[in-house]
């Protein structure tokens, strides 16, 4: 696609965009917007996990002991932290890859999220099974 606006890309981009996106050509705007939507979906996931972590600490006092409750909450909040931060780097790497027409990077936060969720679910199952009636 020969687009005459490519000649003035660096001029149109802001200082931050020029610095972080490192050249290349603007991709189809729909791809850029799709990348932004994916970033927002990861941020929503991160916020949901954050709210879950706070909820475990705040509402589960009758169900878990203090130390276990703290551990699960910290694990969930650490997941929220890593997914929130990782989503920014993923967004930036995908944007750079699209501009340089390179392969898209693997989303390492997806397996991380799956492992974290499985770990929390396992802990919950163990706690429920070990709990006296």
């Amino acid at each position: 696609m020969s687009n005459p606006t490519h000649t003035s890309e660096s001029g149109r981009r802001g200082h931050l965009a020029s610095r972080f996106l490192r050249g290349g050509h603007d991709p189809d705007p729909r791809f850029t917007l799709a990348n932004e939507r994916t970033f927002l979906a990861w941020i929503r996931t991160s916020l949901a996990i954050l709210a879950g972590g706070v909820a475990v600490e705040a509402f589960m006092a009758d169900f878990f002991g203090s130390e276990l409750r703290k551990s699960i909450s910290v694990l969930l909040l650490a997941m929220a932290f890593l997914i929130g931060g990782g989503s920014l780097f993923r967004w930036l790497n995908v944007e750079r890859a699209m501009r340089s027409k390179g392969p898209l990077p693997l989303p390492w936060i997806a397996p991380f999220l799956a492992l974290g969720a499985a770990l929390v679910a396992l802990v919950m199952v163990a706690v429920v099974l070990a709990r006296p009636n």
Binding site: N3, T5, D26, P29, N35, I43, G84
Partner: peptide
């Protein structure tokens, strides 16, 4: 216009606030 520049500042600010 078939051209869009991603807004780095607001994206970073949102991810930063969650972190």
């Amino acid at each position: 216009q078939e051209a869009i520049t991603p807004v780095i500042a607001s994206t970073t600010a949102l991810a930063g606030s969650v972190v």
